[in-house]
Each structure stands twice: as C-alpha cells, then as structure tokens.
Design a protein around this nucleic acid. Sequence first.
DNA 1: TACGTCGTTCGATGTTTTAAGAACGGCGAA
DNA 2: TTCGCCGTTCTTAAAACATCGAACGACGTA
Lengths: 128, 128
Amino acid sequence: MKHPQQHPDLDQMKLTEVMAALSDPIRVGLVRLLSDGVERGWGELRAPVAKSTLSHHLRVLRNAGITRTREEGTRCFVTLRRADFDTRFPHLMDAVLDAAGSEDVGHHVGLASAEKLSGVRAGEEVNA
Amino acid sequence: MKHPQQHPDLDQMKLTEVMAALSDPIRVGLVRLLSDGVERGWGELRAPVAKSTLSHHLRVLRNAGITRTREEGTRCFVTLRRADFDTRFPHLMDAVLDAAGSEDVGHHVGLASAEKLSGVRAGEEVNA
DNA sequence: TACGTCGTTCGATGTTTTAAGAACGGCGAA
DNA sequence: TTCGCCGTTCTTAAAACATCGAACGACGTA
C-alpha cells in the first residue's frame, strides 16, 4: 500500500508509546486475537468500528512495535511481534495478556470465521 | 482535603485505565520514585510541572488504583499500592518498572532532598 | 481498458487529556 | 482570629485522540 509500512527497531520502541497503544480496548482486543501467534488477514478482523478506524488502530500498534504488517498484493496480514517485544520488554506482554484475559478486554473484537460462514458481511451486527 | 479521596477496589481497577495512567512519562517517573515502597510526602516530589498539574497526575494514578494517598492534617503522603496491584495484575508492575528503568523514563521526576539542602524552593530549576 | 476490491490517507468533528493560573477550603502557627 | 501554607478544584486553552465518510492509489480481474 502506497507507503512502505515502517516498523520500529527494538531500541526505537518506547515504553510510554506501548502503554498508550495498549490503553484502548479495541487495540487490546486485537492483540489478544493475535496472541496465538497466527498471522491474520486484515479481512478476518472484526471490530465495531469503520474500516478507516481499524486501519488507524493497526497503525498505532505497528508504530509502537507491537505488531508487524506484511503486504501481499493488495491485502495485508498482521502478526504479533512477540519475540521482538519480549526481548525489549520482558514479561510485559504476558502480564498484559493475562490481565486482559481476566477482565475480557476487547471482547467485541473477533474473527470473521463464524459470521462469514453464515453470510454476514464485514462490520455488521458485530456492534450489537 | 475537602473531598475524601477515593481509591478503587481491586475489582474496580481496569486494565486500560492503568495502561493509560502509565502512558505519561511524568506519571511513570512518579511510580519509579515510589517503587522502593517508601511513603513520600507531596512536598518531596519534584517534577517540571505546576502544582495543579502534579495534583492532576497524582489523581490519575490514584484513580487507576496504582497509588494510595493518605492525608495527615494539611499534607498528603503517597505510596504505591504494590501488593494490591500485584494481586490484580500479577507481574505487570515488575515488567513496567524494568522497562522504565532500562530507558530511564521520567528521569526528570525526583525527590527534593538534594535541592532542599541547598536552599532551592519547590518546583524551581528542576525544569532545567 | 475498465471495474471492483482492498487498505491507506485526508478532512472534519466531538471528546479526552495536558497544562497553567486563579480561587478556594482546611489546617496550624503567630 | 488572622495569617500563611498546602493541596484540590475550577476555568480556560492547547494539543492529542477516536471516529467516520469520502477520496485516493495499488492491484487483480473481467
């Protein structure tokens, strides 16, 4: 996509930026979704926001060094930069994921799978 | 002081609020300062902001459940709610403190000790 | 080539946050 | 009681953020 998507190096990651990135429920939800290490296509992601907003959230995560975006043709795939992140901020991701899991932060963020199979379109009814 | 200073219970603490509270360098600096477990008087704290702003930052930390404020006569004392916090968010504080230490977040926040001994007044020259 | 899809970027809007100063209320000392 | 100190709250202003819709550019396909 147009501009070549920059990802920060380990030593460019800033704690306060990471904390700010993880202070939004939708972004935490996305991180939880990616926490199994599986790469996900943009189109699989479901969140109760407009696509431009989702794009914005993914950029915040990317700029903070939390996720990596890979482009393939016209579509994008995201992964957690788990190893990098753990190197720079040991144990932080684990602690955040545990906490987020226990209070179910970002539960309205999910995958397309179920809805897609039942014919529901992108971005609909998920906000219910 | 006037209103009785409310502190959230363990189950009222919200991850995203905590993350937001820790996304500001000054607040992280305050947390680092308190991380030795010693209770500090308001007057000991030095940060390059106006007192109303410092009061605001301390309220954000308090509302997030990170610190506890105790009043004694006309002055206040703050402590980290370390045990509570660790119960609610295991390992999170350690991870944050480690990261903050390694990049020296909030280094402009400090104690009065040295300056006081040399006759410097509250809130001055620290912003240098 | 013309069209549709995909994700980003732009522009606008409303909300939240940071910040400082002024005014206030509580308390202790003179 | 009167004064001064301490920390909070209020007011105001500036900056940052979340959100959306529209427009755009890149790519694949008909």
